[in-house]
């Protein structure tokens, strides 16, 4: 919840930035660029610099096989796009949340979630994202996305989610 609040605040701040720097997205042409089909609403998913765009279009999560923390080909594709986006949008920092499904003990799943978050963090750093923009946290099996007790849900719960946050990078 805290992260979501921060993300919304950041989006608001960026919206202001977008107004005062009309050239930033090269959309300050006809009529101020806010009207008409295909217009970019700052902060919405149509704004390529928004957290919503990152979440919906770039893709904010990667999934893992049972008891694994290695990145899949699909995961590498998503993270490659995440890295590029983060490089283009340097005002954002991110917390990478690692998660596990419920098939496992609590402590082990915490450690497993940390491995997954770390795998994502390492990949993004290798692709050029400054290490001080990325933090990791593990929720183990504490925060399932899907609540059924079979593989259709488990597959979605074994995830690492890159959650954008406000604030400058820490040293």
């Amino acid at each position: 919840m805290k992260h979501l609040t921060k993300a919304i605040l950041l989006v608001s701040a960026l919206a202001v930035t977008a107004c005062t720097n009309p050239d930033r997205f090269d959309n300050a042409g006809a009529g101020g660029g806010a009207a008409g089909a295909g217009a970019i609403v700052p902060g919405s998913a149509s704004d390529p610099a928004s957290a919503a765009y990152f979440q919906q279009t770039v893709g904010d999560r990667v999934l893992f096989a049972v008891d694994q923390s290695s990145l899949s080909g699909e995961g590498i594709d998503v993270l490659t796009k995440q890295a590029a986006w983060l490089m283009e949008n340097p005002l954002y920092t991110a917390i990478i949340e690692g998660h596990a499904d419920e098939q496992g003990t609590r402590e082990y799943n915490l450690a497993l979630g940390a491995r997954r978050a770390s795998a994502v963090q390492n990949f993004l750093i290798e692709r050029g994202v400054a290490p001080n923009r990325l933090k990791t946290v593990s929720y183990g099996k504490e925060r399932p996305l899907e609540v059924c007790s079979d593989e259709t849900c488990y597959a979605k719960n074994r995830r690492a989610v890159t959650v954008l946050a406000a604030g400058g990078a820490t040293s």
Partner: peptide, 9 residues
Amino acid sequence: FSLESGGNT
């Protein structure tokens, strides 16, 4: 206790 750093516990 356990301490995790850089993905290793």
